[in-house]
Design a protein around this nucleic acid. Structure first.
Lengths: 157, 157
DNA sequence: TTTTTTGCAAAACCTTTGCAGTTGG
DNA sequence: CCAACTGCAAAGGTTTTGCAAAAAA
């Protein structure tokens, strides 16, 4: 099981569903009910969720919708830049509102907790990767997997 | 499509199928024909391959075998520490012989090339992650995804 | 002999896709 | 009006699983 903690906002995140939809419209795409609903669910969730959770209406918090359409809309919204597809370490993919280019996620393989990374710290790591490998890395779609501080302590205790 | 280049050996990699199987036996597990075959395929491949490729006999280079058993054996061999399950950015999972704790892989999301990372450079990045987040990260199962130097140049050219 | 492992087939799981009908602009 | 989008259902690709038979120790 994956736990999500300490989720919070970021300066680059679209402020609202309407702002995100303005981007959609600006790209010549349509603002359909289903598309709006996906965005509303992502904002309502406030943390990465699966397509299935969105289609299921987040357990009652938002209206239900068609899973196929949810997947299609998530893909469209990701292409447009307002949604982030986060590949969880295992299981179904997660989706969340895009914040900025230094988005990042940390997953503990011991306790399963996934948490967002401080964008400034992500920038530092990206710089280190650039220096070491010449790669312009991104940690926005693939979490950094490891053992968190708390689990490390417990292990040594 | 994923390309694999510059694959080479490392001091920590089991020297042979027999060494790897000694580890298996040391854990109280049996050395079966199917298990040996999976290891032979991984050594013969010399680079990460899918379970399906192994079951298919690497296109004639090794004997064919049952896909379900290949998956079970890969999981067992990973648990024992002689095999690495590398989650490709997309598509089927890849498997390869484990080398050391600073195993790492880099994937370019533009050209699709996946290449092994220099273990010393991986150690540097792990240190940076530890400092920034307090995590003991591993890059052995989840590649570092980004844009490689060559593709960055092409883009700016 | 006893326990592990196999081979096969079926199922599970997540995601994509074809299509006819609907809708946004 | 008409291209974009939806809902449904079916298929796709990958991995897991149940079980009786086979094989390792």
């Amino acid at each position: 099981m994956i736990h999500l903690l300490a989720w919070r906002e970021d300066a680059h995140m679209p402020a609202s569903v309407d702002v995100a939809l303005a981007t959609v419209r600006a790209r010549g795409l349509r603002v359909s009910a289903a598309r709006r609903l996906v965005l509303e669910a992502l904002f309502a969730a406030g943390e990465p969720v699966t397509a299935d959770q969105i289609a299921a209406g987040l357990g009652g918090r938002t209206p239900r919708s068609d899973l196929g359409s949810v997947y299609r809309n998530l893909e469209t919204l990701e292409r447009v830049g307002v949604v982030r597809h986060v590949r969880a370490a295992q299981g179904a993919g997660l989706y969340t509102i895009a914040r900025g280019e230094n988005d990042g996620f940390l997953t503990c393989e011991r306790c399963g907790e996934m948490r967002p990374a401080d964008p400034r710290a992500v920038a530092v790591i990206r710089g280190a990767v650039r220096k070491a490998f010449g790669y312009d890395a991104s940690f926005a779609s693939y979490p950094i997997v490891g053992v968190c501080a708390r689990c490390s302590e417990e292990r040594s205790a």
